[in-house]
């Protein structure tokens, strides 16, 4: 189930297979990834994420105003000069939005990757090694899972606010906190898969040939989990970005930096909603929703790519498949005739 390639092959071979005539060696074999069924959903989600990333990293190069450049007073309405007006400190909303999106994405990348790494490490160790180690690791995981993450996040970030270590006060510190609190989901999912991979024959072969446990984990177990790890990573990215904005909205973000949550925090603090200054709160809201939707949509479409049982045949594809089968059957029949004539 975890093997991407075998799934792809299963998805490809349907109906009676005609004996393939030896083709002229004009084209190379289709690379494996081409046989993955990337649906339109995947491209939509990739498109959303790409646009937002461009906005965050390339946008500031072309935009005339900086995020720390005072260009007006509180909540100036949108004008030709400032398309989305100014926010509560008199900064240009678009400039702040781009800086915020960049910081949120960086934070998500750091925290999400860390969380995925810890989750995969714990899951794979527990699933493969088993025994008391599995019991202990999964015990810890289940306990951490039961305690609401937001509570631990709040408590740690409050403690962090009064530390004197500059590293922990910055974006990296926040990412670290989010990373070390959000791994349990991944660990659980990976453990289940790893323990099923651990019973396969090729693991025995690896053991017999003298491979060490770390080597087996990396070269013989991990590749079979690749699709799960990728999907978990995508989910972790989204949830890390949301966790950061939740904390920032509560006033526990990194003070003095821009982030989508911070923008909302200030918009709420300065009554943007009640005064109808939509340009101050709608842009970060929409970007956050798009980021979150993009990543979740990407995850669910990857799920359909890797897991054909979730996929539903589209009428167009079904018709094409039926045509292919018909063609194959016709070829078979023709060949049968040819053989018959020859005999």
């Amino acid at each position: 189930m975890t093997n991407i390639q075998s799934n792809a092959v299963v998805a490809e071979t349907e109906g009676p297979v005609a004996p393939v005539e030896p083709e002229t060696p004009k084209a190379k074999a289709r690379p494996a990834w081409r046989s993955l069924n990337f649906g339109p959903r995947l491209w939509v989600s990739v498109g959303i994420i790409l646009v937002i990333t461009l906005l965050a990293f390339v946008g500031p190069l072309f935009y005339p105003y900086g995020p720390d450049q005072k260009v007006g007073s509180i909540y100036d309405s949108p004008s030709a000069e400032h398309i989305l007006g100014t926010e509560n400190f008199g900064y240009d909303v678009i400039a702040v939005l781009m800086a915020s999106t960049r910081n949120s994405l960086i934070n998500g990348l750091l925290a999400g990757t860390l969380a995925t790494f810890i989750g995969v490490l714990i899951g794979i160790l527990a699933g493969y090694v088993g025994g008391w180690l599995e019991e202990a690791l999964m015990g810890i995981t289940n306990i951490v899972l039961a305690i609401p993450a937001i509570v631990i996040l709040i408590l740690i970030s409050i403690s962090l606010q009064s530390t004197n270590i500059p590293f922990l006060k910055g974006i990296a510190g926040l990412a670290l906190v989010i990373g070390i609190t959000s791994w349990p989901w991944t660990a659980r999912a990976v453990r289940a898969q790893a323990s099923s991979v651990a019973t396969r024959e090729h693991i025995d072969v690896a053991k017999l040939s003298g491979a060490r446990t770390p080597g087996i984990l990396v070269f013989d177990v991990l590749p079979y989990l690749a699709s799960y790890v990728v999907m978990a990573w995508v989910l972790q990215l989204a949830s890390a970005i949301l966790a950061e904005s939740t904390l920032s909205m509560l006033g526990l973000g990194v003070s003095g930096t821009n982030s989508l949550g911070m923008q909302l925090h200030w918009a709420l603090a300065f009554q943007a909603v009640a005064t109808g200054a939509w340009w101050a709160f709608l842009p970060p809201t929409i970007v956050l929703t798009l980021i979150s939707f993009g990543f979740l949509y990407l995850q669910s479409s990857l799920d359909e790519v890797f897991n054909p049982r979730l996929r539903r045949g589209k009428k167009k594809n079904l018709a094409a498949a039926a045509k292919r089968r018909e063609e194959a059957a016709r070829k078979l029949a023709e060949q049968g005739d040819a053989v018959g004539v020859a005999a």
């Binding site: 909302l264 956050l288 929703t289 979150s292 939707f293």
Partner: peptide, 9 residues
């Protein structure tokens, strides 16, 4: 996928 507070806002 919408964060709670985004829909609320």
């Amino acid at each position: 996928s919408m964060p709670y507070y985004c829909l609320s806002i």
